[in-house]
């Protein structure tokens, strides 16, 4: 049974009219509230996505399964990494695909990739959950950090590495919402800035600055943790 920490989600910027408003320490956050999405952000869909979407509109089950297989795991992990518990993450994945099957015309290939569309829907749902009052969700530590099973030679090295990663994930969980989502999308999900900007509906520059600030915050927290342990 992994230890469970409870933390408060910060207001998701750019979508929830929080009473606190944009953060004072983030001058670009205010701009991102009303910033329209760049038309240049429209990323070309991956080859075959247009065809998949057409087949899905025609009601082909195989197309739906193919899309599900390709995207369900990243979406699930995204929800978990954003702080949703397991049940909520499953519900979120389910809702995203129900939305896709109900209105497949919602995905417009000319406006971006299928992945950015699905992540956009997922993020919207997460924000909805946040609005409904689930501001406190339990963060389950990623106890299933997979990887190669450690060989007898580097067991201790692997264990310390895992401890470091667990610390990092805890520090990530403590980040404010707007920074965490950027880190999750750009670093954990390894998305380009343009795609992340399309999902979060803000400018590419905002993504870059938020990511930089988030990294700084993470470093500070990790250093504080190290100092605390040493002392």
């Amino acid at each position: 049974m992994p230890p469970t920490l409870v933390f408060k989600l910060a207001s998701p910027s750019g979508c929830v009219p929080d009473s606190a408003g944009p953060r004072a320490d983030d001058p670009q956050a205010e701009a991102s509230h009303s910033a329209p999405v760049d038309s240049s952000l429209a990323q070309a869909p991956a080859p075959g996505e247009v065809e998949l979407a057409t087949r899905l509109r025609q009601g082909e089950e195989a197309a739906f399964t193919e899309i599900y297989r390709a995207h369900h795991a990243p979406l699930y992990r995204f929800a978990l990494q954003m702080g949703a518990p397991n049940g909520l993450a499953e519900e979120l994945v389910h809702d995203v695909f129900v939305e896709l099957m109900r209105s497949p015309q919602g995905f417009r290939p000319g406006r971006g990739s299928l992945r950015s569309y699905l992540f956009g829907v997922a993020r919207h749902r997460l924000v909805d959950q946040w609005r409904r009052g689930r501001r406190e969700v339990s963060w389950e530590e990623p106890g299933t950090l997979a990887g190669e099973p450690p060989s007898p030679d580097n067991v201790s090295e692997e264990l310390s590495r895992r401890q470091e990663l667990a610390q990092l994930s805890r520090a990530l969980a403590a980040l404010p919402w707007e920074y965490r989502e950027v880190v999750v999308l750009c670093d954990l999900q390894e998305m380009p800035y343009q795609e992340a900007a399309r999902i979060l509906r803000c400018r590419t520059g905002t993504i870059a600055s938020r990511r930089h600030r988030a990294h700084k915050l993470l470093q500070e927290r990790l250093q504080r943790n190290r100092r605390g342990k040493e002392s």
Binding site: T65, E90, V98, M101, T144, A146, L168, V183, Q189
Partner: peptide, 20 residues
């Protein structure tokens, strides 16, 4: 961070797919 992302191999349970 990218290592953390790569090591995270959690996946949606199969029953979600069946329900869908």
């Amino acid at each position: 961070l990218s290592e953390l992302g790569r090591r995270d191999q959690r996946s949606t349970p199969e029953q979600v797919h069946l329900r869908l």
